[in-house]
Amino acid sequence: MKLSYFPGCTLKNKAKSLDIYARKSSELFGITLEEIDNWQCCGGVYSTAKNDVATKLASVRALKQAYEKGQALVTVCSACHNVIKQTNHLMKNDTAIAKKIDRYINDGSMYTGQAQVYHYLEMLRDIVGFDEIRKKVVNPLNGKKIGAYYGCLLLRPSSVMQMDNPENPTIMEELISALGGQSIIYANRNECCGGYIAMESGELARKKSNQVIENAKKAGAEMIITACPLCRYNLIKNGSDIPVVYFTELLAQALGIKGDTNE
């Protein structure tokens, strides 16, 4: 099975391990991620303003390419997924903007949100299935206590993202248990790490990240996994004394593709 894949800027640079292990692991389940040709950066954040059209072009191009190939579009980075999924939703529901964007792209066919967008986690849950993953695990995590960190981008706005219950998500917890780990539920797992504010106000980012780390640790987590390079950066930079790794690394480790992720 082949799926279109949008890696995004960070996965080609600072977050290479998020990318590499996503691709390698999916191969194990017979899924090939085909990188979109000439993809452009999604912009990192989705602009909700109705008069902000240009910032959506990169996402629409990627979506359109996937749709024309008859493939669903998969992303791993939370930010890319958020931008692309929201853009797709907009294309489907706002014809005026879809027409405007069509005039920019101007290649003969208007895109109106037909492509299916999956986050890699959704792909694991809905296409592969956690039971299938469980069967392929060779290095189970032996009950390691792992706190999934969702942040904001994967889940919200929930009416558009529709990945999971935005206040009590389970998708990463189910993955952890499929890999033989013990998932730790903590309330701040869907709160913001501070995101791009790290550039502007390191203090606020520190405060937010610390709240997440503290809450996870008090709940008993020995490790945090995330799908977002910026979340990982903020948590590590602000002094997490437990490892913060990408969920794809953990996946690859359990599947025997990668060595121990405990640094």
């Binding site: 800027c9 954040v45 910026l230």
Partner: peptide, 27 residues
């Protein structure tokens, strides 16, 4: 709110590209 000239001072070795593009788009 954010100028390209200011950016180098804000960076460290680990900061992901995503943070920079997001900040630019927002600011």
């Amino acid at each position: 709110h954010l100028l390209a000239d200011d950016v180098p001072n804000m960076l460290d070795d680990e900061i992901p590209q995503q943070a920079i593009v997001s900040a630019f788009r927002k600011y």
